[in-house]
Nucleic acid binder design. Structure first.
Lengths: 125, 125
DNA sequence: GTTGACTCCGTACCCATATACGGAGTTTAA
DNA sequence: TTAAACTCCGTATATGGGTACGGAGTCAAC
């Protein structure tokens, strides 16, 4: 049973962030006694830990909301994971192409003799 | 000698985007005769093409502004390219780690027998 | 019992990169 | 000559994921 400040400190996130997640409907509303203060228990903490881990895996907040609403239906979750995997692989391929291009460009810089004429700039012109 | 609409059409970008780049100081101000209309020539077109190509390489607008102000000093440009390369490689490594994690997770989904208990969800809890 | 820390709320602001809107003035084509 | 198309400007909106602010109420410690 913690107030929002304790919760935020324990999870090392901002108080405003917790309220933000609540507004977005990503976490369930905590009970609020007469004084209006939000009271969190283990359930909320676990829910927030879930969010933080999923976020670290690259899921967006909307996706995380979906994940949490799937209530453990494995096929749905797997499908979402596979979709994410596909996007990640595309992104990797994009970046690898980009890596090659920039690598080539900087190599041609190294080979260049004239410091005031840059092959990179030239190739972009 | 083109007005902004022709220019935008030729480069397949939005008129507002051209004005936006001008406001950001990324492209030079075109001359503007009595009617106030911007008049672009080949120089501006080349400048915008440069921007579009650099953007496609993943440079931010601020970085592009720097690139353009380096006036071809090769060492500076190379240094910026190498820095970008480093970031790209880090990003790739991140994504590959992520790929592995999600791959493992979806595999454990496939192996799972109970449709209402998902190993992904469980591992996040 | 007072002071400082905490919480409440609504709202505004931040980043980057644009895109959209509305009203007024200008040019162009039929 | 007139209507459509274009341009001007300033401002607002969008995205995603938060962060900050300010005034008011509440709680806890000394």
């Amino acid at each position: 049973m913690k107030t929002i400040g304790k919760l935020a400190k324990e999870l090392d996130i901002n108080v405003e962030t917790v309220r933000f997640y609540e507004r977005k409907g990503i976490i369930v509303q905590p009970p609020r006694p007469d004084n209006g203060y939000r009271i969190y228990d283990k359930t909320h903490i676990n829910q927030l830990k879930f969010i933080l881990k999923a976020k670290a895996l690259g899921f967006t907040l909307d996706e995380i909301a979906s994940l949490m609403s799937m209530s453990g239906n494995c096929a749905d979750v797997e499908s979402m994971g596979l979709h994410k995997l596909e996007l990640i692989r595309e992104k990797i391929a994009d970046l690898q192409r980009l890596e090659q291009v920039i690598q080539d460009m900087t190599n041609s810089c190294k080979a260049n003799q004239d410091p005031n004429s840059c092959p990179i700039i030239n190739s972009l012109n």
